[in-house]
Amino acid sequence: MIHEAAIRFERARVVYANGAVGLAGVDLSIAPGEFVVVVGSSGAGKSTLLRAVNGLTPLTAGSVAVHGQPVPRKEGRELRQLRAQVGMIFQDFRITRRLTVMTNVLVGRVAHVPGWRAMLNLWPEADREIAFRALERVGITDKAWVRAGDLSGGQQQRVGIARALAQEPAIILADEPVASLDPVTTHQIMRDLVRINQELGITTVVNLHFLDLARRYGQRIIGLRAGEVVYDGSASTVTQNDFRHIYGRDPDAGDVLDEDAAP
């Protein structure tokens, strides 16, 4: 067999019920272990692209496959098994504030333990160990028994990352993971993601709004515009002109995190 893509889109289309076009025919292949940054202005289809990979948003035409297996369009056991190998990180963290950090991270194990064990909160020791190692990897082991809502924004996002890591996933999808964080925390979280990609070899796709972050942390940059891939290339060779093409306008101070390093 030839090298199988971690994620492969073929003529993938998403048209929402209200007629809005999320993806307008995307052909894309992401190799195992790649660190890909997706950029594009608001409404370009970045979230739709990520959510198609784990079936949160089903395609309306075309196909998307994860490690050669087509993503089912209907909820069910097959889709749950696929999702178990794909971790997702969100802009708004999406952790339960009133539960402990540990419980939030163990949610990453739901697809791996018998249903009754999760139901009764009787997690196997091995799964608790996996959760602890996930917390170690993002450096908040000491917070394991703290209420998640009592943590700072950066720490809450680390809980989100630890939950994804607890899945022991082959792929991590991060949808604007730093958009609600301050600049210092932003760089810490981005470095965490890059380090995890390098140490564990997890294929990582990150949606970013800021161009300087994309250039600094991405290996490969994919530019989306109106649901289409309009740029696909190395982060080291992307030019000002490419960004102008992706955004359909001149990038300005609002498109970079560090204003000093404005393009």
Binding site: R80, V86, G87, M88, V107, G108, G160
Partner: peptide, 13 residues
């Protein structure tokens, strides 16, 4: 709830 689904959780989970 959507994040739990994204981790492979069932409706009950």
């Amino acid at each position: 709830p959507e994040a739990v689904r994204a981790s492979g959780g069932s409706w009950l989970q």
